[in-house]
C-alpha cells in the first residue's frame, strides 16, 4: 500500500480523500485536514471582503495542496477568468473546473467544461474537471488535457450517494486518468463503495459540513476510503448468480 500513490498531473499523493472547505467554520479546517489525512483541499474564489481580516489560507496547514474551484462560472470564459485569478493568488496551478448554468440542480455543463479544460490545460494548469458522468465527454476531457475526471455521484450537497453508479463504473473502466468521485457522497459507506469500484479518490464537503461532529466524520471517511481502496486492490470476491457455496468442509460430517 505504501507505493499506492494517487498521481494527478505528475504530482503524487498518499491520501485519496479530497476535502472541501465550504459551509463550516475556518477554525475546524485544521482538525478536518488532520483527521481526514487529506493532502488536497478545495477553495472557492470570491470578491474580496474589505472588512474581514482573516484569510482562509491562515487556517490551512502547511504542505496541503490547494485546489481552487471555478464555482460561480456559468460558461467556459468565466471559468477561465476565475482559474487565472486563482493562480494569481499564488497558491499553485491546480484548478477544479465547475461550470453550472442553473442554480436549482447545480448540474455541470459538460460542453463548456470541455472548452475550459482545453484552454486551461494549454496554459499549464493541472485541470480537474467536475462533470456529469458521460463517457464521450470524459474522452473529450482526456483529449483536452485534463489531469483527472471528477464525475458527480448525485447532485451537489444532496448527500444522496452513488445515484450515477453504473456510469461512474464505465468511466473507471474506460478512462485512463484518475476518476475522482465528486459531489453527492453523503456517507462513508458510499465513499467505500466508490473506492471498491476502482475510483481513484473521493471528494467530499457537505457530508462533513452537515455531520454532527465534523472531524470525527472526516476520520470515518478516511477509514472508509482506505478500506475501499484496499478491497479494490485485493480484488473483490465473486458473487454467485444463484444458490450457495459452503465455506466449511463438505466431508467429515458427524453422521453416518
Amino acid at each position: 500500500m505504501n507505493n499506492d500513490k494517487l498521481i494527478i498531473g505528475g504530482h503524487e499523493f498518499n491520501s485519496r480523500f479530497i476535502l472541501g472547505s465550504g459551509k463550516y467554520s475556518m477554525k475546524l479546517i485544521e482538525a478536518a485536514v488532520k483527521d481526514a489525512g487529506a493532502e488536497i483541499i478545495t477553495l472557492a474564489v470570491r470578491r474580496a471582503n474589505t472588512k474581514e481580516q482573516e484569510s482562509i489560507l491562515d487556517f490551512i496547514p502547511e504542505g496541503i495542496t490547494l485546489l481552487p474551484n471555478t464555482s460561480g462560472a456559468r460558461n467556459a470564459e468565466e471559468a477561465v477568468r476565475i482559474a487565472r485569478l486563482a493562480r494569481e493568488l499564488g497558491c499553485g496551478n491546480f484548478v477544479k473546473i465547475e461550470i453550472m448554468r442553473d442554480s436549482k440542480y447545480l448540474l455541470p455543463d459538460n460542453q463548456e467544461t470541455v472548452k475550459a479544460t482545453d484552454i486551461l490545460a494549454n496554459e499549464g494548469f493541472v485541470v480537474m474537471p467536475y462533470m456529469y458522468p458521460d463517457l464521450n465527454v470524459a474522452r473529450d476531457l482526456v483529449n483536452a488535457g485534463a489531469a483527472s475526471v471528477m464525475p458527480l455521484a448525485s447532485p451537489i450537497g444532496s448527500n444522496k450517494g452513488l445515484a450515477t453508479k453504473e456510469f461512474i463504473q464505465i468511466l473507471i473502466d474506460e478512462i485512463d486518468l484518475p476518476i475522482i468521485v465528486d459531489a453527492g457522497i453523503g456517507r462513508p459507506s458510499q465513499a467505500c463503495e466508490a473506492m471498491e469500484m476502482g475510483a481513484a479518490a473521493i471528494m467530499a464537503n457537505t457530508a462533513l459540513a452537515t455531520a454532527g461532529d465534523l472531524p470525527m466524520m472526516a476520520a470515518a471517511f478516511k477509514n472508509a476510503i482506505e478500506a475501499g481502496r484496499k478491497a479494490y486492490l485485493a480484488g473483490l470476491g465473486r458473487v454467485l448468480t444463484r444458490g450457495a457455496s459452503a465455506s466449511d468442509p463438505l466431508t467429515g460430517f458427524l453422521r453416518d
Binding site: G20, S21, G22, K23, Y24, M26, T42, L43, A44, V45, R46, R47, A48, N49, S55, I56, L57, L66, P68, N69, S71, L85, A86, L89, C91, I156, G157, A183, M203, N205, T206
Partner: peptide, 10 residues
C-alpha cells in the same frame, strides 16, 4: 476592477 481572494468552497 475585480479584487478577489480565496473563500471556503467545495
Amino acid at each position: 476592477l475585480e479584487i478577489v481572494s480565496f473563500a471556503g468552497g467545495g
